[in-house]
Structures are given as structure tokens and as C-alpha cells.
């Protein structure tokens, strides 16, 4: 057989791809989180950041998006293939099954992964395609240039309490997924041993928690500002954006 096909069709080849796409996706969520927490700075910061990303040349923007979606597709597809193979390897389960070592995070990987897939679809529709709610008319004056007001969009998005709760739950599942996955990928790529394992397991848990706390701080801050009366985020800015939107609509109906 062609050695390349032999590698891809082998159990280990599929696991390598699972780990490598996992590296990309885990790296992405950390970067995404770091970008998002700029919401705690004045609106200008995150809007400048968002505008920079969206004004990347089309090839670069869609190249990056395409690469991330490809990694996601491979990760999800192989998760299905490997999980089905694993189930088939034990057609008759134990009547009395016990667990000695495996963590809840590791055992829940297929389930946390599946729910995260639904979350990612919703999240892209919510904030990228923007078809769940209409965020088309949120202008921001960035040094004389009218750009999309990401600060206001994120704020308004999380004022729907059910959206916020769904995001917080999904992020706790992401935390679990990372807590196992980030250490597991080292083992799969063959770069882990008994000496490093405890450290990598702790690092993976810390990684999961950092991403988790970073992400959930945003919907929590929005809910506390909107309904709790705490001035964590700039509520007046949202009103200013909506006034600007009306003015611009009057000028260019």
C-alpha cells in the first residue's frame, strides 16, 4: 500500500491528525480569548482590533478562516470515526464496569466535543454571519472612518440571558475538553513521559481554566452591567452607538 495512505488509515495516523488539528484549535481559542478580553478596555481598542482583522486582504482572511474550518472539520470527522471504531471494539459492554484512573474530562471527550460543535455553529451564526440577531446597523466612528461597532455587538449579544448562559455552559465544556486534550496531544505525538506527565496534566488544566475564565468574564460582565447596575462595561457607549445608527440612517436612508 502507498505509505502515505497507510499512515492516514492507521489508528495512529488518525490520532496524529486529531492531535495536530487539536493544537491549532487549542491555540486559536487562547488567541481568540485574548482578543476578546479587550472589551474591558475603552471601546476604541476592540473596535480597532476587529477592524484590523476584518480589513485583512481577502486571501489572508479567508485563508485563515478556511484553515481553521478545515482543522475543525478534520478534528470532528476523525472524532466520529475513532469513536465508532472504539465502540465496535467492545460490542458487549461489562455488566459491572468500574473506572480506576480515567478522569471525567477524558471520558466525556466525545460528548463535550459534540456539544461544542453545536456551540461553534451557533456562535458563527450569532457573531460572524450575524443571522441570529440583526447587528448590521452598529456604526462606530474610528478616527473619522465608520466601522462596525464590535463592542456594542458583543454587549447587545450577551444582554439576552439565554445566550449568555449557553455560552457559559459551552465554555465550561471547552475547559473540560482542553483539560484532557492539551496534555493528551503530547502523549499522542510521543512527547510525554512519566516525568513530564504530571506537569503537562496540570498545565492542560490551567490552560483550560485560563481560556474558560477569560471567555466567561465577558457575558458575566455584560449581565452585571445591564441588569446588576454595576459599571463594569461602558453602557453609555451602547446608547451612543444606537443614536449614531439613527442619525446615519436619517442621512443615508
Amino acid at each position: 500500500m502507498n505509505p502515505f495512505r497507510q499512515l492516514l488509515q492507521s489508528s495512529l495516523g488518525k490520532k496524529y491528525l486529531m492531535a495536530l488539528t487539536g493544537v491549532v484549535l487549542a491555540g486559536f481559542v487562547l488567541g481568540h480569548m485574548a482578543g476578546n478580553v479587550q472589551i474591558f478596555l475603552p471601546p476604541e481598542y476592540i473596535n480597532t482590533y476587529g477592524h484590523k482583522l476584518q480589513s485583512l486582504p481577502g486571501v489572508a482572511l479567508w485563508g485563515i478562516r478556511g484553515f481553521l474550518l478545515l482543522c475543525l472539520a478534520v478534528h470532528v470527522w476523525l472524532a466520529f470515526v475513532l469513536t465508532i471504531e472504539n465502540r465496535l471494539a467492545r460490542p458487549l459492554r461489562y455488566e459491572a464496569e468500574d473506572t480506576v484512573e480515567a478522569t471525567i474530562s477524558s471520558r466525556a471527550m466525545p460528548y463535550t466535543g459534540l456539544i461544542l460543535l453545536f456551540f461553534i455553529i451557533f456562535h458563527i451564526l450569532h457573531y460572524t454571519v450575524r443571522s441570529v440577531y440583526d447587528y448590521s446597523n452598529l456604526p462606530y466612528d474610528l478616527h473619522g472612518e465608520v466601522v462596525h461597532d464590535i463592542y456594542a455587538m458583543m454587549y447587545l449579544g450577551f444582554t439576552h440571558w439565554w445566550v449568555s448562559i449557553f455560552y457559559i455552559i459551552a465554555m465550561s465544556l471547552l475547559c473540560m475538553h482542553l483539560a484532557h486534550g492539551v496534555s493528551s496531544m503530547f502523549q499522542t505525538m510521543g512527547v510525554r513521559n512519566d516525568k513530564w506527565r504530571p506537569f503537562l496534566n496540570k498545565a492542560a488544566l490551567a490552560y483550560g481554566w485560563i481560556v474558560y475564565l477569560g471567555f466567561i468574564s465577558i457575558p458575566i460582565a455584560v449581565l452585571l452591567t445591564e441588569y446588576g447596575g454595576l459599571p463594569i462595561l461602558d453602557k453609555e457607549h451602547i446608547e451612543a452607538t444606537q443614536t449614531l445608527a439613527k442619525t446615519l440612517t436619517l442621512i443615508h436612508p
Binding site: 489508528s11 467492545r90 484512573e101 502523549q187 505525538m189
Partner: peptide
């Protein structure tokens, strides 16, 4: 089936074969 790095195998192994051998095989 395929290993998902649970660690159950090594935990029950009567000869305490370490998980390192799986990493070695992967490498």
C-alpha cells in the same frame, strides 16, 4: 480500539507497564 489516553490500562496492569511505552510507540 484506539487509545484516548485514559490511563486505565497502566492502572490495572499487573506488571505496571508505564504509559511511556505508548508514547514511545507513537514516536
Amino acid at each position: 480500539g484506539n487509545c484516548t489516553n485514559f490511563g486505565e490500562c497502566s492502572a490495572v496492569c499487573p506488571k505496571e507497564i508505564p504509559l511511556d511505552v505508548i508514547a514511545k510507540m507513537n514516536r
